[in-house]
Design a protein around this nucleic acid. Structure first.
Ligand SMILES: [Mn+2]
Ligand SMILES: [Mn+2]
Ligand SMILES: [Zn+2]
Ligand SMILES: [Zn+2]
Lengths: 136, 136
DNA sequence: GATTTACTGCAACTCGATTGCAAAGATTAC
DNA sequence: GTAATCTTTGCAATCGAGTTGCAGTAAATC
């Protein structure tokens, strides 16, 4: 596992106090985090600073965002070497019981045969159901 | 193509003036519609009535909703025989240029191999890029 | 050290979604 | 048919995630 400093250096994002603590929080979580999640976890960091940090991270491929339909965009740290282009994309799983959203890094997304002349740039693939912990 | 009345009868949803006009509008569009889209198209129908109509339609599988990441949930009429279970799902395509969202009824979603003990109930699969009209 | 640029915190604001409530309409019970 | 009951509708108010303006602070550059 890389440190926050290493990741930011590789992605050419200047290291600041807020950025370090936001990235550290994201790295420490097994599930994708919403702005609200991060705000709650970092009691003394302002929401808009976290918001702008997330935008910066996303623009620089430090993290990727997930629209899981919960009403809040979730964020997760990109895998090492990820460029967020179609070949790097992966499914996400949203548990309808416990509200956790996971990156399914191990399940590849197949190449999707689009209609004539459509061009894929990105994708947001969310499977919804029960996670292992809730499916009992 | 079935009429609004036929669809509502099949799906056991009582026919009302608002429901007929909302469903008619959805049927007339090639792209998925947001609440705002519908509100704009139906100048004399109240937003909250449309909103509740969409909820009723979705509960009764008259329509399905799409979270395309545009910030507004989109709605499209279900295909004949659709039960909105995993086998009936299809990809959606969101054009990042013209903001249109399409149902890709003809492209099947493969069965996704989830981690041990995860259970799929639903899915929201959005491919983003340029539609045929914008990819020139 | 002065100047310029980037980051942060606070408050205000936007806008899609949602709800409470009372009036209007439809259905059912007498 | 009329009264009682349930459903739908319209309006206004509210919620909450996301976003922005601005001024103060910190960092980088000259
Ligand atoms: Mn992910
Ligand atoms: Mn669809
Ligand atoms: Zn769960
Ligand atoms: Zn387009």
């Amino acid at each position: 596992m890389q440190t926050e400093e290493e990741i930011l250096k590789i992605k050419k994002v200047k290291n600041t106090a807020v950025r370090t603590v936001v990235l550290r929080h994201l790295l420490s979580q097994e599930k994708a985090q919403s702005l609200k999640d991060i705000e709650n976890a970092l009691a003394y960091t302002d929401r808009s600073s976290i918001f702008r940090t997330l935008k910066t991270f996303e623009e620089n491929k430090v993290i990727h965002s997930i629209e899981d339909g919960s009403g809040m965009t979730k964020y997760a740290v990109c895998a090492k070497g990820c460029n967020c282009d179609p070949k790097d994309l992966h499914y996400h799983f949203y548990c309808t019981n416990c509200d956790k959203t996971f990156c399914l890094f191990d399940v590849p997304i197949p190449k999707i045969q689009l209609p004539e002349n459509f061009k894929q740039q990105q994708a947001n693939m969310v499977v919804k159901g029960l996670c292992d912990n809730c499916n009992k």
